[in-house]
Amino acid sequence: FPSRPVDREKAEHDLALNIKKATSPDETAPKQKHVRKCIVYTWDYHTSESIWTGLKVQPILSDEVQTFKALITVHKIIRGGHPVTLKDAQNQTSWLDTCARSISEDGIRGSGYGVLIRAYVEFLKSKLAYHRIHPEFNGNFDYEDYVSLKNVDDPNEGYETINELMDLQDRIDQFQRLIFAQFRKSSNNECRIAALVPLVEESYGIYRFLTNMLRALHRRIEFIDALAPLGSRFNAQHYALLKFYFECSNLRYLTSLISVPKLPQDPPSLIDGSAPPAIP
């Protein structure tokens, strides 16, 4: 069914190999070429079933680096894959729990990945829960104007949507701080930094949504004081994000892959309606 020339049988065969290589025991980032093949597969065939099966037949759960790489891979596939991937992922929470249970605090290698794995699983589960309640958002929070407008049509609902989106943003912030805290001087930390890449992109997508939804809500509601809690929370998240991006901009491996967003020093005004910052 894709209009590009494809060979399903070959694709299935290659997919198993790609999953194996993306989750290899080397302490590096999951190779992008293999992750990309998985993402392309979901768009070509509008399914992600073989990916989950592939992940489960791989003996990754005995090794913390492999498990961590599997979680990064899953996160990237959910974000970049066909929308069906996000739905399929919602049925995989028990596999995620297994990942969190299988690795002890320090793991076999004693490299502290156990903590990161559990935090990653918690984050992915809250992301999936958010998408379950708010199916109008896509996996990578690509900015679409109508979603922000639709969500504030009913101010009460809009308030809740924004509040929950802020909860998710806080979780990203907690998780990224944990990753930085787990950096080792003796290592190039590439595998840990690899997990920051989708987090930078995700947090920025959420930030752009929040900015626009809050502005729309401020235009709609006359009693602005009611929005004060959201406003101050937004400001706090702005400064947290500013710090996160600043720290990321010092990681050469990360900046060689993606451009880290530059936020203004102060939070943008929620009352005037200038356009939201564009993706860099």
């Binding site: 209009s3 590009r4 992008q32 970049g80 890449v197």
Partner: peptide, 25 residues
């Protein structure tokens, strides 16, 4: 029309990586 339908092919190349033998990106 074709490129729009298959945009994910190009989109996923935004993280393309290749570092050659001289470690040039």
């Amino acid at each position: 029309a074709y490129a729009k339908e298959n945009i994910y092919i190009v989109k996923t190349l935004q993280e393309f990586q290749y570092i050659d033998e001289q470690s040039k990106d």
